[in-house]
Design a protein around this nucleic acid. Structure first.
Length: 211
DNA sequence: ACGTAGATCGCCT
DNA sequence: GGCGATCTACGTA
């Protein structure tokens, strides 16, 4: 996947359905990405690099696309993937996943089960065991991987969560999610569908087609 | 289903 | 000293 030669908005949408895997104590814990947000760098009032702000905490945002930016707020870690070329501080926040491998480990890490395991940005990092140790590393070369997964049947956009009083940046539709997937944060029960129905049907592989 | 409060910490100012 | 790109528990319908 190309994290450099595309707009951050495109990457945020392309990440939906990709499989996110983290090596936690020797086990590849994983899930399909179902919700993301784009943060558009120096012009974006909601972005940590707004107006070129550069402090030790946000340093990773200035790395090349494919770098990992993890920061902490309250007691949670939030996971971002840096986009664009080095020096252009844009990123995509991973907000929710649908668990795939080692669900039992995620349940144990969260001390919760069901949708509460990973339907929020702080929840999914806790479930997978992601900490600040990942900050500044590169996707694909260390303990974090992003690989092919499923194809969303439909993608929805909305304003980003938790960005009050930032004018046009509060309203900008920079949050993207797999329509109807129950693991999307703050999804009304009424709008949920069975998880499998939010994805395109899997192609049947390794099977001859006799029609 | 929704709103509100409280937690309790690293990182800036 | 103040403030979050959040989460949880606990009110109330």
């Amino acid at each position: 996947m190309d994290f450099i030669c595309q707009s951050t908005k495109s990457i945020a949408q392309e990440l939906l359905g990709k499989k996110l895997s983290f090596n936690y104590e020797g086990k590849w814990v994983s899930g399909y990405i179902v919700e993301t947000e784009a943060y558009l760098g120096v012009v974006d009032q909601a972005c940590h690099s707004y107006q070129g702000k550069r402090t030790p905490r946000v340093e990773s945002l200035y790395l090349e696309g494919g770098a990992v930016y993890v920061y902490q707020m309250h007691r949670q870690h939030l996971l971002n993937i840096v986009t664009r070329e080095a020096g252009v501080p844009e990123a995509v926040l991973i907000r929710a996943i649908q668990p795939v491998d080692h669900l039992e480990l995620m349940i144990s890490n969260r001390n919760k089960e069901g949708l509460d395991v990973s339907n929020g940005p702080g929840k999914l990092t806790q479930a997978m065991g992601i900490t600040k140790a990942l900050d500044g590393t590169l996707v694909g070369v260390g303990t974090l991987k992003i690989t092919e997964g499923l194809q969303p049947r439909h993608i929805s956009a909305s304003p980003r969560i938790g960005i009050p009083n930032k004018g046009e940046w509060t309203e900008a539709p920079l949050r993207f999610y797999v329509t109807g997937n129950p693991y999307v944060s703050q999804m009304p029960k009424k709008s949920m569908v069975v998880a499998a129905e939010s994805w395109e049907n899997k192609k049947i592989r390794n099977q001859p087609n006799f029609s």
